[in-house]
Design a binder for these strands. Structure first.
Lengths: 343, 343
DNA sequence: CTGAAAGCGCTAACAA
DNA sequence: TTGTTAGCGCTTTCAG
C-alpha cells in the first residue's frame, strides 16, 4: 500500500476507505453507484465520505474510467444573444445531468481545424456540441471518423451523417413571407445570412417558395447579402433602400440583421412599419426590447440547445443507436414592425 | 514495461517514444518545454509526435502534474449580454494562453454553495473566475481558506481579501448624474440594481454625491428599486412615473434596467428624451442598437474579463504575489436619450 | 458482496 | 542530457 503520510488537503477514496473500514474499491463502487453493495456497507461509506467532505477527483476518474463527464461546446463566439440562448438551453440540460461544460470558441486556432478537433477530443470531453459550425467539414470528418459523439446545432452540412438539431428554417421563412404578402406587400426584400450555412439557404428557399406560391416574381435585386450580423443587415438594407423602386417590406434572415436594417431605414428618414415593414428571424431577447418591437419568426433557441444536449447525452450512453435528427418548429411572432403597404 | 498490444486510437507518449527511439520521459520533457533537451533529440521527438498526430491527454497530465490547464468561470447565467461581454474578454485572454474554459452557472445547486465551491476546486480547475457572484461569501470563504486562485469580477464583498476587477462605479454614476444636472435636470430618478451588490451600492452613492455636490436634495421617493434586469427597470420606472411630480430624467443602474424603463416611459405616452431623459450603465450592445440610442456609462466589460483572466493566470503562476485589485475606468457615452428638461 | 491488483497517460524526483 | 522509478486518484477485471 502506498500513501501513508501525505495528509493532503482533499480526502481521497483511500481516506474514506480507512474511515469506513472497507477497501478502497468498495468505496469506489459505492460512490459510482454500483448496485451490488450491501446496504449497510453503502451506509458506512456514504457516512464516511460525508464526514470527510470527500469530493471525487474528475481527472482521476476520467483517466481511469474513460469518462470525463465533460461536454465540449464549440461556439463561433460569445458576442451574440442568439448563441447565448442556445448555450442557456445546453446549460440547463447539462445541469440536470452530471456533466460539466467546457466552452470552446471557434475563433481560436483558426486554420488547423482538424488538429483542433483532435485536441478537443483529447481534452477529455465525452462529447461535443457544435453550434452553427462554419467550415465544419474538417472538424466533422475527424470527429465522425472516430465515432466521436457529437451533435450539430442549427447547421447541417450536405454530407453530414451525425445528429443535428435545428429549426424549421424553410417553413419559418415561408410563413413570414406569406404573412407579408397577406398584408398586401408585393415587393419584399430579403436580407440573407452568411453564405454556406444551411439556415441561410433554407430561409432563402422558403422566401422564394412563398413568392412563387403567390404568383410573385422573384426579383434578384431584392435579395441583398447579409452576414447574420447587425452591420451586414445595415449595409444590405442600404442597398435595398437605394433601389429605384424600393421594397415596401424587408424580411431579414435573422433578428440581428433586421435590427441593423431598422437602423438603416431610420437613417433614410423612413418609418417602421408605416413606410417599410420588417420581419426578422430568431426572436432573440432584443427583438422585443427595442422600438418598434420586431415581428419575427421565433426559433426555440434554448430548446434547441437543451434538445441537442440531451441527444448527445443519449448518444454517449448508447453509442449504438442511430443518430437522430430533430427539427423544432418555428413560429411567427407578430409584433409591431409590420403593416400593410402605404400605397 | 506495460502496454504492448493495445494499439489504441490516440497515440500516447509511449508511442512517440518508441517512434523517436527515446525514453518516454524524454518525450514528456520535450513536450512540456523542458529546456535541457538536446536539440537533436527534441527534433526527433517533435517529428515523431507530429508524424503520429500525438495530442496530449489533459486528464493524465493534470492528474500527474497537478495542473489541469482549466480555468473555471462561474457566472450567474447566460441570458444577458453583460455577462456575454465579460465572457468574451475572458475567452480572449484564455485563448492566448494554454488554458481552457470550464463554464459553471450559479443557478445550479443553489443552497449548498460551499460544497459547490469544493466541487469546483476538485473538478480540477487551476483557478476560478467569479462573475458578479451574489451571495458569494460561502464560496469565497472556502476558496480563500485553501488559497485557491480566484478573482472576482465586478463585485467585492466587504471582507474580501482576494483579487477583484471592477469598473469605477461611483465615478461613473457621479458623472452620469452630473451630466443630467448639467443639462438642467433637478428631479432625477434613480433605478437601483440588485441589493447586496457593490455595483448597486457604489452607483447609488455616486448618484447621491453628485446631487449633493450640486446642492440638490436627495428625494427618497426618486429612488426605485430595480434588479439589474429589464423587468425590474420597467417596474421601477412605473413607480417613478406614477409620482405626483415625476422626474424629468432617470438614471438607471444598468442598461437592461434603462431599456425596461424606456418601455415603461413609452407606455405612459412619453417621449425620450423630450419628456424624460434616460441614462444607463454598462453600454451593452443593445444600448446602441435600439431607438433612441441610449446614453450610458460605458464599462469596459470585455476588458474587465480579459484583465481578470490575466490576473488569475498570473496568480496561478506566482501564488506568492499579493492579490491585485484593479479598477478600470468607465466613460460616459453620450447618445440620443438625453436632452434638457422641457420646462 | 468485497478485496487485491493492474493500470489509465503523464509528470517528477532520482540516478546515471 | 537522458533513463528509471514512482505514483497522481480512480475504475475495473479477477478472484474469492
Amino acid at each position: 500500500m502506498h500513501r501513508e503520510a501525505k495528509r493532503s488537503l482533499t480526502p481521497t477514496i483511500y481516506d474514506v476507505a480507512r474511515e469506513a473500514g472497507v477497501s478502497y474499491s468498495t468505496v469506489s463502487r459505492t460512490l459510482s453507484g454500483y448496485e451490488f453493495v450491501k446496504p449497510s456497507t453503502r451506509e458506512k461509506v456514504l457516512r464516511a465520505a460525508e464526514k470527510l467532505g470527500y469530493v471525487p477527483n474528475h481527472q482521476a476518474r476520467s483517466l481511469a474510467g474513460g469518462r470525463s463527464h465533460l461536454i465540449g461546446v464549440l461556439v463561433p463566439g460569445l458576442n451574440n444573444s442568439y448563441i447565448g440562448e442556445i448555450l442557456r438551453g445546453i446549460d440547463e440540460a447539462l445541469a440536470e445531468s452530471e456533466y460539466n461544460l467546457l466552452l470552446y470558441t471557434t475563433h481560436r486556432r483558426q486554420g488547423k481545424e482538424s488538429h483542433y478537433a483532435a485536441t478537443i477530443m483529447n481534452s477529455g470531453v465525452d462529447g461535443l456540441l457544435l453550434v452553427v459550425p462554419l467550415m465544419a467539414t474538417p472538424y466533422l470528418d475527424t470527429l465522425h471518423e472516430r465515432d466521436f459523439p457529437c451533435v450539430v446545432i442549427d447547421q447541417s452540412e450536405e454530407t453530414q451523417k451525425g445528429a443535428v438539431v435545428s429549426g424549421t428554417n424553410w417553413q419559418g421563412a415561408f410563413e413570414a413571407t406569406e404573412y407579408l404578402i397577406g398584408l398586401g406587400h408585393c415587393r419584399i426584400g430579403f436580407i440573407s445570412g452568411l453564405a454556406g450555412l444551411t439556415s441561410t439557404t433554407e430561409r432563402l428557399a422558403g422566401y422564394s417558395a412563398a413568392l412563387a406560391q403567390h404568383g410573385l416574381a422573384l426579383d434578384e435585386r431584392l435579395i441583398a447579402e447579409g452576414s447574420f450580423l447587425q452591420e451586414g443587415g445595415y449595409t444590405a438594407a442600404q442597398q435595398l433602400l437605394a433601389l429605384p423602386d424600393r421594397p415596401t417590406a424587408i424580411f431579414a434572415a435573422n433578428d440581428l440583421s433586421a435590427l441593423g436594417a431598422m437602423e438603416a431605414v431610420r437613417e433614410h428618414g423612413l418609418r417602421i412599419p408605416k413606410d417599410i415593414s420588417l420581419v426578422g428571424f430568431d426572436d432573440i431577447p432584443q427583438a422585443s426590447l427595442g422600438y418598434p418591437k420586431l415581428t419575427t419568426v421565433r426559433q426555440p433557441l434554448s430548446e434547441m440547445g437543451r434538445e441537442a444536449a440531451n441527444i448527445l447525452l443519449e448518444e454517449i450512453a448508447h453509442p449504438e443507436q442511430p443518430r437522430r435528427r430533430v427539427t423544432l418548429p418555428t413560429k411567427l411572432i407578430i409584433r409591431d414592425s409590420c403593416c400593410p403597404p402605404a400605397g
